[in-house]
C-alpha cells in the first residue's frame, strides 16, 4: 500500500484543489484531510459521516475555588503566563495554557484538578470518490499533531479493512508540528508550488524537511505561467535535487469555478489543466512504485 501526502510549505498554492482532482482520478483509495486546523477538502468532497467521534487530548487545569489559598505558587511556576492569582484566587488563561500540569503538581493545597480536554471532532465518511477520514480541530486549540496522527492511524485501518491500495492525504501548510506528524509513514510527498518568491523559498524549506525525514518527494508547479524565470528556477532546483516534476499547471480560473460548484476540476472540465492532472497522476503512481521498490 502507498501513502501519498500533498503538501506545499506555503499556503494557497493549490494543495486541496490538486488533492480533490487526484481523489477523483484515483481508484481504490482512502482519502484523508490532514489539515485539521483549516480543512477545506470536505467542501469539494461533501462527505456523509458514518461516524463522528470526539477528539479528547491533553488536559486543562481547573482551580477548585474553595481550596485555593491564593499562595501564588502556580503563578510563579508557570512558564507560559497562563495562571494568575487575584483576589478571587487563581485563574487559568486557557488560551495561553500548554496543559503541562506544573500548576497541578506544585499546588500545595492540591486545589487544581486536571480535566481531559475536548479539542475537536473526527469523522469517517462516505464520499463520491470513496471513504474519507477527516477532522476539525476547534478554533484556537492545540494538539493538531496528535489529531493528525490519529487520522493517519484511522486511514490505515480503513485501507486495510476495505482492501484499498492507496491513502491519499491533503496536508497542512508550513513545516511545523502537524506537517511533521503528517509526514510520518508517508511513502511519497508531493509538493505543490508556484513560481513566486514565496513559493520557491517555502518549497526549498519543505524539501529540506522531507530530506531530514528521508521521505521521497516530487513536485507539481501550479500557476506555472505567472513567472517564467522563477518557474525555471524551480525546475533547476528540482533537477539538482533529483526531484521529479510531475506536472506544470497553468494559472487556470477553472480551479475556482470548479470549487464554487463543489467539484474537482477534473469533474468540472475536460480542458488542458484536467488533462495535465491526469498525466501527473500517472507519473505520481510510477514514482510511488519506484520509491517503494527502492
Amino acid at each position: 500500500m502507498h501513502e501519498i501526502l500533498i503538501i506545499s510549505g506555503k499556503g494557497g498554492t493549490g494543495k486541496t484543489s490538486v488533492t480533490a482532482a487526484f481523489a477523483h482520478i484515483c481508484e481504490n483509495a482512502v482519502i484523508c484531510d490532514l489539515d485539521v486546523d483549516a480543512p477545506d477538502l470536505h467542501l469539494i468532497l461533501q462527505p456523509q459521516p458514518r461516524q463522528t467521534t470526539e477528539f479528547i487530548s491533553g488536559f486543562e487545569p481547573k482551580v477548585v475555588a474553595e481550596k485555593c489559598t491564593s499562595c501564588g505558587t502556580c503563578e510563579q511556576m508557570c512558564r507560559f503566563d497562563a495562571i494568575k492569582v487575584g483576589d478571587e484566587g487563581a485563574v487559568v488563561d486557557p488560551i495561553r495554557c500548554e496543559g503541562c500540569g506544573v500548576c497541578v503538581y506544585f499546588c500545595p493545597e492540591k486545589a487544581i484538578d486536571f480535566i481531559p480536554k475536548h479539542c475537536g471532532d473526527w469523522s469517517i465518511s462516505d464520499t463520491r470518490f470513496g471513504t474519507m477520514a477527516h477532522a476539525q480541530l476547534f478554533p484556537g486549540e492545540e494538539n493538531s499533531g496528535k489529531l493528525v496522527a490519529l487520522l493517519r492511524t484511522q486511514a490505515r485501518e480503513l485501507a486495510a479493512s476495505e482492501g484499498a491500495s492507496l491513502i491519499l492525504s491533503d496536508g497542512p501548510p508550513g513545516i511545523g508540528c502537524p506537517v511533521i506528524s503528517a509526514l510520518s509513514g508517508t511513502n511519497l510527498a508531493v509538493m505543490v508550488t508556484e513560481p513566486t518568491p514565496s513559493g520557491i523559498h517555502d518549497l526549498e524549506r519543505v524539501v529540506e524537511l522531507c530530506d531530514y525525514f528521508k521521505i521521497p518527494t516530487s513536485v507539481i508547479i501550479n500557476k506555472c505561467d505567472l513567472n517564467k524565470t522563477i518557474a525555471g528556477d524551480i525546475r533547476t532546483f528540482c533537477d539538482k535535487k533529483g526531484i521529479c516534476v510531475l506536472g506544470e499547471l497553468p494559472h487556470d480560473p477553472d480551479f475556482v469555478n470548479a470549487m464554487v460548484q463543489a467539484r474537482a476540476i477534473t469533474e468540472f472540465s475536460q480542458g488542458s489543466t484536467s488533462q495535465k492532472l491526469r498525466e501527473a497522476w500517472q507519473r505520481l503512481l510510477q514514482q510511488a512504485a519506484e520509491s517503494k521498490a527502492a
Partner: peptide
Amino acid sequence: APPGVSCPAISAVI
C-alpha cells in the same frame, strides 16, 4: 501572522 487558527496563529495574534 501564520495561516491557520490553531496555536501558532493564536500566539501571533494574542
